[in-house]
Amino acid sequence: MSNPSEINGGSAVAMIGKDCVAIACDLRLGLQSVTVSGDFEKIFQYGGNFVAFTGLATDVQTVSTELRQKHALYEMVEERSMEPNTAAHLVSSMLYSRRFAPWFVGPLVAGINSTTGEPYVCSFDSIGSMDVSHDFVVTGTATNQLYGMAESLYEKDMSPEQLFETISQTLLCAADRDAITGSGGLVYVIEKNGKVTKKLLKSRQD
């Protein structure tokens, strides 16, 4: 146990398409080399915002629950839904509030702005530095592999169907080269009209 972000393993990726976004994660939860669970979902839904958390599983659970509280409170007080960029800033300030004693998580936010219709993806480091991207963002133990896959496979203005294929292959191929990422994949494709397609990928189980 040398790096808390690599105890449990796991990765996630999000991509922008034409009037759509996709976010995907693997399903493994491990304790070092032992796979404890093969259906540990790392993507959480907050209204129209989809947030993936990778890193130390206990912190993933703590932060995702804390975000659920804050999201619910926001919608109750504001009487409106939360936009993706707002969710991203909320995540950022939650993480930065623990600047000198961080949560060991690497979040991604994906969603579509309900007023402008703009797709939005954003990644963070463990202390809340935001990286708003106009193509793709990655996080987790397979970060390097995901960057390599996404950088070569990604195309601008993909249709929801095309985006699903690209993000899935990006995740699956990256997971093949990371021992502690895998055991299945989960993909959400979110379209401008509010349609969400959730797919459970068939993948190798080693």
Partner: peptide, 14 residues
Amino acid sequence: TTSYFEAGSEVFYI
């Protein structure tokens, strides 16, 4: 190209 499980997949609206 990518194969997935029909069961465990779903479509819903926000």
